[in-house]
Design a protein around this nucleic acid. Sequence first.
DNA 1: AGTAATCTCTGACTAGAGTCAGAGAATGGC
DNA 2: GCCATTCTCTGACTCTAGTCAGAGATTACT
Lengths: 291, 291
Amino acid sequence: MAVTEVLRRFNRTYTQRIGVLEESFLGTGRPLAVSRLLFEIGSAGAVGVRELRELLDLDSGHLSRMLRRLEDDGLVATTVDGADRRRRLVSLTTAGQQAYDDLERRSDERASSLVAPLTPRQQERLADALATADLLVRAATVRLRQVGDDDPVAREATRRYVAELDDRFPAGFDPGPLAPEPDATWVVATSDGRPVAHGGLRPVPGRDDTAEIKRMWVDAGWRGAGLGTRMLRHLESLAREQGYRRVVLDTNGTLTEAIEMYERAGYARIDRYNDNPYAEAFFEKELSSAS
Amino acid sequence: MAVTEVLRRFNRTYTQRIGVLEESFLGTGRPLAVSRLLFEIGSAGAVGVRELRELLDLDSGHLSRMLRRLEDDGLVATTVDGADRRRRLVSLTTAGQQAYDDLERRSDERASSLVAPLTPRQQERLADALATADLLVRAATVRLRQVGDDDPVAREATRRYVAELDDRFPAGFDPGPLAPEPDATWVVATSDGRPVAHGGLRPVPGRDDTAEIKRMWVDAGWRGAGLGTRMLRHLESLAREQGYRRVVLDTNGTLTEAIEMYERAGYARIDRYNDNPYAEAFFEKELSSAS
DNA sequence: AGTAATCTCTGACTAGAGTCAGAGAATGGC
DNA sequence: GCCATTCTCTGACTCTAGTCAGAGATTACT
């Protein structure tokens, strides 16, 4: 059966049965949207109103009114953000924390009772299937975005990239003062606003037809979802758009999954082309105008 | 990770991303509920208003108004049910069929674009995972209901049970005139109002402590979801409630999955205890008061 | 034949969800 | 320091979803 069919069938099953997980928000005397808001504030600790609006994609008037309602009920407290006094921060009061815990408990109970008729083995199968579906659906909805290297999300991605290399390389990894690369193009993949993959492209001095792929990184929890390949493809097509006909990259021998991915993606080994002390494997790929 | 956690995590991913499949109902100038109604009428062909109300669990006033809206838009036509002139039947007009096809197309497009970023292999994995989740969620929400043997759903189940045996037994299966069994208890498992499994319990003449399990059947599309075992457990606990201390059953050697299931469930082979010409294997199980 | 029950529909509501314009306070860029 | 912009909030709406009571036609029960 085609994916779309399965997806649509599942969608119907879902809205009819699991969708009712939402019901756990009801019976609290508060409308659904307000409960959902409370849940979101509780999960995040203290949040800015701005962030809430973006996260839940709400109209500012609508959100404001719902916050007022929660405030009147004594569940949240809002304070002015010291760093930018136009903004306001929202956090749970003690009563709010209690209401949040109550929502958590209801949701857990609802979920438990839903799977209760299944045997332990079936519950395990269901958990596996849902975890796979979750990963893939998230992966499918990841957004690739071109950013400047001063973008906060790009910075976070770079920080995590460096941290991981430092962790995996036997001798650690010290990037030195990361030289600013004014001509580089950076791409970050985000999910729910957090970076999950990163990569860049920079011109190679002296070779007009060649760009180098830099700082390829995929979050550990997201491996196996094809994000690396997607990032690579994306960078290649950017390179093509910028007029390059060839890309090269270097990598460390420790990163075996990465090397496999490069080979699968049509990269061929070449000789060392720089003096990067951490690099042990070097690759190139000719960019056909077609693909 | 525990099932409930995975389920809840998936639930959030889902409502944020796939849930938007509903959006395909929008942009048609009709509210969501009305579109959903149109979709339901279109899937079913012609339906009674009564059935729609039960299927979608709607207030009669609400449904009536929505139908009127669809009628005013020229999408559906209602006629009086000849068999019971209180009832009304709804069917799509030509324009309605077009609107339905349009909804179908939108839903397909939405589903396709959602999975488009995935590789074919990932799409396949997603389809597998969702199909598994779908089966298990449906199985978890199946309802076991005690019915009289004149219940229309029970009749349908029996008809399909007989048809399947006739199909699988090398020499076919002729139940003869199915003798009414006034003292029997019948249980049917339904999903969306359709029978998916069936079984019964009847006293064994001359042995007060023993009941016989009859007409065990699980829909072919539902095997592997543990429905048979659940039905068996359910019948056993009914037998216990009715004061029996032992159950027996007979079956045909062709039904290997069934035999395996009985053995897994703690049934032990015994000698032939009746002259049923189709029966080749005979089982018993002592009912402990505990389980 | 008479009464209770069933089915659909209308009228009269309420509450939730969301949109849009604009006011008032605060900030950033030049 | 000035102007444009950002952020939150209020007011004034619309539309959807859903509830409840009851009317009128029809059928089921005995």
